[in-house]
């Protein structure tokens, strides 16, 4: 193989859960690079004054949010089996970060240009002291109505969600209400999602439930009715 003409790239999916959710995106990048260095993953570095490994991630996750669907691409300087890659890197990652899957490719486009929607989960908890079991169904109804209402409102944000909120599902578990939604991404999505959260939180005026967790589930490319994962996109 001729050097540098065919790059070896590994795309990996990882989770960011529990306490490590409090680190910023920049911290995460540094942490991944250091873990990759400790794991002795042969990485290709950029040229110039500040050589850096060529690690690129998809969309930054907000501090405090969790995820089981983060992706990153790393360019290697040598071939390495994905199995070895996953084992070595996971040995070095701190608690909460874990590589779930990796696939090696000869590259295509950047992750962020491939992705156009994400699935999130908002988990609300009841305040047990305030919510009796039988009330849960009522709350669920309230939530659903409000979500639809929010989506239909003619405010600027609502319009945005009308276009962007691809679908959502609400279910109720013994202690939680879980809202699943797929959202198309564009600029300032965190802000928009935050608006949604703020809106849902404002329902909290009733003080009967609180937002416990924001979890990014996965990211996709939506092609018509098809949802393609970043791994399928590699083909």
């Amino acid at each position: 193989m001729v050097k540098n003409t065919s790059k070896v790239i590994i795309r990996f999916r990882f989770s960011k859960l529990s306490d490590i959710k409090y680190i910023s995106h920049l911290d995460l990048i540094n942490l991944l690079i250091r873990a990759l260095r400790r794991a002795k993953i042969p990485m290709l570095y950029s040229k110039g004054y500040h050589p850096k490994p060529k690690l690129s991630t998809a969309y930054a996750l907000k501090v405090g949010w969790e995820s089981v669907g983060e992706y990153a691409d790393i360019i290697l300087s040598k071939k390495l089996s994905t199995k070895t890659f996953v084992k070595r890197i996971n040995d070095q990652l701190p608690q909460g970060l874990k590589v779930l899957k990796a696939k090696s490719v000869k590259l295509s486009q950047s992750l962020s240009s491939q992705i156009n929607c994400m699935r999130y989960q908002l988990i609300f908890s009841y305040r047990p002291e305030l919510v009796k079991r039988q009330e849960a169904d009522l709350l669920l109804k309230l939530f659903t109505e409000n979500m639809i209402g929010f989506n239909n409102q003619l405010s600027k944000n609502a319009k945005y969600f009308k276009e962007k909120l691809l679908n959502f599902k609400i279910r109720s578990l013994p202690d939680n209400i879980i809202i699943d939604f797929l959202i198309a991404i564009g600029s300032q999505d965190d802000l928009k999602i935050n608006d949604l959260i703020k809106f849902l939180n404002s329902l909290e005026n009733k003080r009967k439930f609180f937002l416990k967790r924001i979890l990014r589930i996965n990211m996709f490319r939506k092609d018509g009715d098809l949802l393609l994962s970043p791994f399928t996109l590699l083909k």
Binding site: D19, I20, Y22, I23, S24, V63, G64, P94, G96
Partner: peptide, 14 residues
């Protein structure tokens, strides 16, 4: 720590 600056500084676990 949900609404503080740099919450990571309070959680340890390094």
């Amino acid at each position: 720590i949900d609404n503080v600056i740099k919450p990571s500084q309070y959680v340890g676990g390094e």
